[in-house]
Design a protein around this nucleic acid. Structure first.
Lengths: 158, 158
DNA sequence: TGCGATTGTTATATATCATTACAATTTACC
DNA sequence: GGTAAATTGTAATGATATATAACAATCGCA
């Protein structure tokens, strides 16, 4: 397998700079959410380091695992991207032997997407690593706080 | 002034697709944070529509307002980007007459960054619009929940 | 004085993503 | 049944954001 360890996104640290007046920046929910999300992204990046896996790719693996035979267009909708983007993402997975396209019987236009055994086993490994890393990340919150956070975030996303 | 209304980022909707099994995706804090952050970004985007303002640009305006004479390198640190990125961002602001570079007395390498009157007044207008839009966005949470959310997010970002 | 560090700058590369156009195919409608 | 509209995957193109690396000017320190 090609080594892609050095490629991929490098989440910026976003650390608070001493001596700087942040004005009313902290008052904005968008900024607070962004900062927390970047922290979570750094944790994710550490967990998947070396695999070239980004959040959208991880999402795609999970979705393919739970919805075998899903089409590229639907995958694009789940990811919130255009069809062409879903195709490039699928290409990336297929090129690495993680997923494959199979023709469907009743519709000649459509490819069904499926994880390969290799994709399944990579996903399993990733799940363990991401879960474990998130556990450390979320340890800053008490168990009850975690539940509350989840419910508040869900309300905002709805 | 050039019209940049049609340019800029288009936050994807990220809407939940009916009939799709999301597997354990909802279990991840990173995914929950990302979804909420995208929702906040959409709100921000609506508030600043037509001005070509992105979150980093808004942040830069706030930081310049609160820290007149700040250097590009420091601005880059605040934004979490490389020096070159801070420079391009500064160029963008300068090109639109929102900020200006002034040489500093004791250090010939450094430019101090300052908002122009136009930059100040744009920032004021943006603040009002973003605050107002965020108010509607956060209305999904009860006042007490908002306080809790802020404190939880701050813990995660620390 | 001289050397290393810092700043701004420029050039280059890359990753992500949207837009547009197109062919093949399916669906809807008359 | 036959034709127009819609859908799907694909390819080409372009825009954007941002990192890296190299460089000159300048500063600070030994």
């Amino acid at each position: 397998m090609t080594n892609h360890a050095s490629r991929g996104p490098r989440p910026s640290h976003f650390a608070r700079v001493p001596g700087i007046d942040y004005g009313d920046l902290e008052d904005y929910y968008g900024y607070a959410l962004r900062r927390a999300q970047v922290a979570a992204f750094i944790a994710f990046f550490q967990a998947t380091a070396g695999a070239g896996i980004t959040p959208p790719r991880f999402t795609a693996l999970v979705i393919l695992d739970a919805n075998p035979g899903i089409t590229q267009t639907t995958l694009g909708k789940v990811l919130g991207t255009a069809r062409s983007g879903a195709m490039l993402l699928t290409d990336w997975l297929v090129d690495r032997g993680l997923a494959e396209r199979r023709h469907r019987e009743h519709d000649g236009r459509v490819w069904g997407l499926y994880l390969t055994p290799r994709g399944t086993s990579l996903l399993e490994r990733l799940r363990r690593r991401v879960r474990s890393r998130e556990k450390a990340f979320i340890a800053r919150l008490a168990p009850r706080e975690r539940t509350i956070l989840k419910s508040l975030l869900a309300k905002l996303a709805a």
